[in-house]
Amino acid sequence: MTEEIIIAGFGGQGVLSMGKILAYSGIMQDQEVSWFPAYGPEMRGGTANVTVIVSDERISSPTLTAYDTAVILNQQSMDKFEEAVKPGGVLIYDPNGISHHPTRKDIKIYKIEGAKIAAQMGNTKIFNMVVLGGYLQVKPIVKLENVIRGLKKSLHERYHKLIPLNEDAITMGMKNVVEVK
């Protein structure tokens, strides 16, 4: 199994940390992982994206031009990455703030109301965990228990009390992701 993912949105949406938790989850179940962010001035107030690869085999290129899955969280990223999904691949997006919805017919498209759900849950910071939940529902490449173990590894101990909240957010995401037909 090899899953090649791009996660893209605004800086501050938790794009990089979502990728990091996914990568850590992969390590927890003995897989190979890589995480490569767009770094530098591109980040300052602008867009952020990260390529995450989880695989049973040694990973070759950590940067890619085509992805199995694109998780898209703003319009700029939609413009940039919709075309980069491999035919037959998956695009998951949060419709919040999206004006041009994806139109491709040769891929599977899912919606997750991450921002809305996070707001309903009373904490906009768990937005990325809701989205992660949506992703894991569609692509269960790592087990939930390993995600929790990954969370523990990637969060500083003083934030460990927030893990149940994050777990709830992931579960909410899993329940609320819908395929767009």
Partner: peptide, 10 residues
């Protein structure tokens, strides 16, 4: 290079 330096892996 920047790729190896900035990338995270196991």
């Amino acid at each position: 290079d920047g790729l190896i330096g900035q990338m995270m892996e196991k």
